[in-house]
Nucleic acid binder design. Structure first.
Length: 274
DNA sequence: CAAAGAACCTGGCGGC
DNA sequence: TGCCGCCAGGTTCTTT
């Protein structure tokens, strides 16, 4: 669910509220969330920690702590993280984590499918942990040269390449489909077969698609909500994703759905030739 | 080493 | 209404 634009939206909304606050209450309602760390150990490790900054890397949300450690949250498919002025009451369905802050506000994470993860990285673990991820596509340094290195020699489909977090961080199923459409590239093209022109177009398309989605606060297909509990609006501008059988906005042809690397994949067979 | 596939979970939807 | 299979924004482990 939450890909780069959704996590970036949540980060921006959270930052002004939680930066400088101290975590005073920790409640893990599902041990799977912190596994292999026990809820008890997670609780005692975090209680009393001050939050010095909120940041994002790929699809991960990160809270930098005043003792040099880092709280990391990944929402996976159905995770929702909201900021609340007061402790949530009433419906705790799917609630997995509650963090109480020193001004009486709370962070509440729900996750119907229980894929989400929360973990604490000690100072020495931080750098190696993020090293596994590929570059951030919205960084200035992410250019056609970097993209060329990512696709070169790879035989797997270009779409699967875009989804590989070790190669590029933050792109998920929605934005892979949309960026490939924008660039006019068929999702099953072997990554290594792209021309220099296609690599340049794809680089630009990725950046534009992600920036546009951030402007619209991400995509809400089903469960996604931002930190205020609101839906994103980028789903209203999908060109191909989830639009099988509907007309392509560019050529009027019919959008098709296929399976690539096990993921539902949408494209226009007319605008994205093999 | 790269790539494909299964596993991890739950809920919603269409079909019968 | 009930049951069954299929599908879903992601990552990771196993197998080929």
């Amino acid at each position: 669910m939450p890909e780069l634009p959704e996590v970036e939206t949540i980060k921006r909304q959270l930052a002004p509220h939680v930066t400088g606050r101290t975590i005073v209450r920790v409640s893990v309602l599902d041990p799977l969330l912190t596994k292999p760390m026990s809820p008890r150990a997670f609780n005692s490790r975090l209680a009393g920690c001050g939050i010095t900054a909120v940041s994002r890397r790929g699809k991960y949300l990160r809270f930098e702590l005043d003792d040099g450690a880092m709280l990391v949250i990944h929402l996976r498919m159905t995770g929702i993280l909201v900021y609340l002025e007061k402790r949530p009451r009433g419906d705790l369905r799917h609630m997995r984590l509650l963090l109480g802050l020193d001004d009486g506000s709370w962070l509440a994470m729900r996750d119907a499918r229980r894929f989400g993860k929360a973990l604490v990285l000690e100072s020495g673990e931080i750098e190696p942990y993020w090293r596994r991820l590929g570059p951030e596509p919205l960084e200035r340094s992410f250019d056609r040269r970097v993209m060329a290195r990512i696709v070169s020699g790879r035989r797997k489909p270009v779409k699967s390449t875009l989804l590989d977090q070790q190669l590029i961080a933050g792109i998920g199923n929605i934005y892979a489909d949309e960026a490939l459409f924008r660039a006019g590239i068929h999702p099953e093209r072997p990554a290594g077969s792209l021309s220099d022109k296609e690599i340049a177009d794809l680089t630009i398309s990725i950046k534009e698609t992600l920036r546009h989605a951030i402007r619209l606060q991400g995509s809400s297909i089903d469960t996604y909500r931002d930190a205020r509990g609101s839906q994103g609006r980028f789903q209203d501008t999908f060109r191909v994703h989830r639009r099988a059988g509907l007309p392509c906005p560019r050529c009027g042809g019919v959008v098709e759905k296929i399976r690539v690397g096990g993921r539902g994949t949408y494209f226009c067979p007319c605008c994205q030739k093999r």
